[in-house]
Write a protein that binds this DNA or RNA. Structure first.
Lengths: 141, 141
DNA sequence: TATAATAGTTAGTTAGATAAAACTATATAT
DNA sequence: ATATATAGTTTTATCTAACTAACTATTATA
């Protein structure tokens, strides 16, 4: 079989796997949250200083969209906002302990999936896989 | 750095790439359609004989959900339904020429992405990549 | 100081995806 | 022949994610 076709199939399988993974993520302990919400939580976890406008720019959506979503997560006790002293217009978005727990659970799901992959592949294969993925992503495809 | 961490990062990058790919897919020529709609089209394209109930089972959603979505695509001239002669309850779902065009565009986007990957990697790397992906997906992770 | 820009909110709207329940029409099985 | 199952539809309703436009409060600038 030609290489291009095989690669098409491999990538199809990979995207099927991603979908299965997402489905698993959204059942289990994180079923109360949408992917979007988990992503907001992830962004806030990753950036020490972040506000509504920056998130909106990152996601390329309107500020109002983000504002509403974030305030819902605040109402649910997952995020807090702290007004900046130096610029009263700005609010630092932070995770509450509950938000940090969600983040931990999310990361654990990731880690568990990766542990399973590590069981299936031998060390050399993992190295090559990492190298290839890095090569692909480095090229800003 | 330990292998697990590197794999975590590689997979993060890969999922970032997937997201970029999706964003590109949903701008460009296919911006009038949602991912879900493209998936309905893909399923109908892939299966010569398929009806509403089967799609519902595949996606694990209610028949009513699929019925509404499919009828919207029929209204937009993308799908047709043809009543079966041997079982009058059943409707064969098929792509119209417009639907087939959408499918072609969709596949072209895929093929183009894969061609870019083929440019970046050498033949041996592609082979290994395919082998590893197959190993992972074969294991029903 | 008056005006611009920025950060975030609020009100109102829309599209899409989903569900439950009641329904029609048809086919199958006892 | 009657009862049950199946294929698909319709109605009603909910939720998410997004939009625009108008708004407040604050900061920066000319």
């Amino acid at each position: 079989m030609n290489q291009e076709l095989e690669l098409v199939e491999a990538i199809d399988k990979l995207s099927g796997l991603t979908q299965t993974f997402q489905t698993q993520l959204l059942s289990g302990d994180l079923k109360e949250y949408t992917l979007r919400q988990l992503y907001y939580i992830e962004l806030i976890n990753k950036h020490q200083v972040i506000g509504v406008s920056e998130i909106a720019k990152m996601l390329d959506v309107q500020k109002s969209t983000v504002s509403i979503a974030i305030n819902q997560l605040i109402d649910r006790g997952i995020i807090t906002k702290v007004q900046s002293n130096t610029d009263k217009r700005f609010y630092f978005l932070e995770l509450t302990p509950k938000g940090k727990d969600i983040m931990k659970t999310h990361m654990k799901v990731h880690r568990d999936a990766i542990k399973q992959i590590l069981k299936i592949l031998d060390k050399e294969e993992v190295d090559i896989f990492i190298k290839i993925v890095n090569k692909i992503t480095a090229s800003k495809l």
